[in-house]
């Protein structure tokens, strides 16, 4: 299966800008399906970015983050060619990990 994580990390001098798009339903547990039954909550709780063995950004999410979440941030101390490791876990124990090269 293709990774659920799409990431673009671009280096601009000392600053690396990271844009991430994740495929995930982010169900709130409040929405009903066509049969009128509640769709159980299913959402990413933690999203972590690591670079050179150090956490550079950690997101704790609730159900109010949009479906197929997007997040953007920047950090210092990395250079072109460094690996950026991205991983998430959801409330049902699902998870995914990917590694991106900083361009």
């Amino acid at each position: 299966m293709a990774s659920s994580i799409r990431v673009r990390a671009t280096s601009n001098g000392d600053i690396t800008e990271v844009q991430t798009l994740i495929q995930h339903p982010m169900d709130t547990g409040l929405v009903k399906d066509a049969k009128g039954e509640l769709i159980p909550a299913h959402y990413i709780q933690e999203l972590k970015f690591e670079c050179n063995g150090k956490d550079v950004f950690v997101a704790n999410w609730g159900t109010a983050v949009s479906k197929d979440p997007y997040v953007k941030f920047s950090f210092k101390g990395a250079k072109k060619g460094d690996d950026l490791k991205i991983s998430w876990t959801d409330n049902k124990g699902g998870s995914d990990t990917t590694t991106a090269k900083i361009a």
Binding site: I15, M26, T28, K54, D55, V56, F57, V58, A59, N60, W61, G62, T63, A64, V65, S66, P69, Y70, V71, K72, F73, S74, F75, K76, G77
Partner: peptide, 21 residues
């Protein structure tokens, strides 16, 4: 509470995301 982000040392204090309202 919608989202909470931890900003370690060296990370620029700024976030863009998309929320449900």
């Amino acid at each position: 509470l919608a989202a909470s982000y931890r900003i370690p040392d060296g990370t620029i204090p700024g976030v863009a995301n998309r929320l449900k309202m």
